[in-house]
Amino acid sequence: MPVGRYPVPFDRDVAVELLRQMLRIRRFEEACAEQYGLGNIRGFLHLYIGQEAVAAGVVPLLGPEDSLVATYREHGHALVRGVAARSLMAEMFGRATGCCRGRGGSMHLFDAATRFYGGNAIVGGGLPLAVGLALAAKRSGRAGIVACFFGEGAMAEGAFHESANLAALWRVPALFVCENNRYAMGTALERSQARTDLCGHAAAYGLSTRSADGMDVVAVRETAEAAVTEVRAGTPCFLELQTYRFRAHSMFDPELYRERAEVEAWRARGPLHTYTDRLKAQGLYGEAEFLALDAEVAAEVRAAVAYAASAPTEPATELLRDVTVAA
């Protein structure tokens, strides 16, 4: 199935910004993989490569008054949200100048300035959090919605079902963004859900639902825009974006559960190259411009790695800070 069946409908600035954000994520993630190989990043590292259209398409629709809750595969969301690449990379290097002073690592990126609430590595754990944040936004009377990203695997958790009901019952401004990448680690959706129509699950609780091709950043942005508008008007929404993770679940995953041909078929639908081709075909963007953009992004990522590599480590004397306010 081709990606994107109609011309890119955005003006050039928006169109290029979508490309730039996807490229930033891709190059940042490639650098993460490389640094993992070099031993500079340890622990679990979950790469987002293949799913870039989701973060790039949805996150820029959020304003500074909005909040964002994500999962342990959240580098892309944090980057697009505006958390500095060097602060993210330093966190993954476990350095004192990382966004969480080296306490979180890849799975727990947080940033108060951009209302980025993690970085939650319990599958489904972010969903009730989002309901509460949205309740607080509603009660305070200030503008602001909460976008909560999670994978389709989270929909088997009770947390999804309880949160979907609470959000609809209390009518809080929450946008539930399900990144359906078809595998919960190694378990395919059809092996974990009797009903694989995910919007059906959400609709059953009274959430407004929408679905789009998560490989097509144009479709993601347009669909998310409609959903965000609805949430801002007070209706909690569920948005399913059908996507695919090109890399292994984590760096420890031998990928025994899926066929190479399947991965190749999805790679052919990759969000970055298909979108770039569309922009070029439409005459919105040239090869020289693309190369310049790629160089600019590569420089940002290189600088982030250099910053992280030379960043100070937190001394062990600081071990017990930030457990409670007093400690």
Partner: peptide, 13 residues
Amino acid sequence: LGFVGAGVGAALG
């Protein structure tokens, strides 16, 4: 799980 988690979120908010 849902309303205690929502309490955490509401406190954060």
